[in-house]
């Protein structure tokens, strides 16, 4: 599913921890236009569970959460229309 979306911005937050993973994801989403897609790379399981949930609560659409490696998660998000 994520493969069908053009990624407009990619953010490497593998060395960040909560809450900065979400803080920086949120700041990046604010910079995008509504409907654009952000890809966030995370490096710990706590962020991998918190970030998609927080992004969802903000009203954005979490398109996918992939785990290409043991300690690497990729969250793909579409910015809300607001």
């Amino acid at each position: 599913m994520a493969g069908k979306n053009t990624v407009d911005k990619s953010l490497d937050l593998k060395n960040e921890v909560c809450p900065y993973t979400f803080v920086k994801s949120k700041l990046a989403l604010e910079e995008l236009d509504p409907g654009q897609v952000l890809e966030v790379h995370l490096g710990n399981s706590e962020s991998a569970s918190n970030v998609p949930r927080s992004i969802d609560l903000e009203g954005h659409e979490v398109l996918s959460v992939d785990r290409p490696e043991t300690s690497h998660w990729v969250v793909t998000v579409r910015r809300s229309q607001q």
Binding site: P19, Y20, V23, K26, L27, E30, L57, E58
Partner: peptide, 23 residues
Amino acid sequence: ALTEDQIIRYSRHILLKGVGGVG
């Protein structure tokens, strides 16, 4: 744009719905 220090200093504001970096 917010600096790295500002992102940390104001992170608990930025986290809030309705505030964010824009606020």
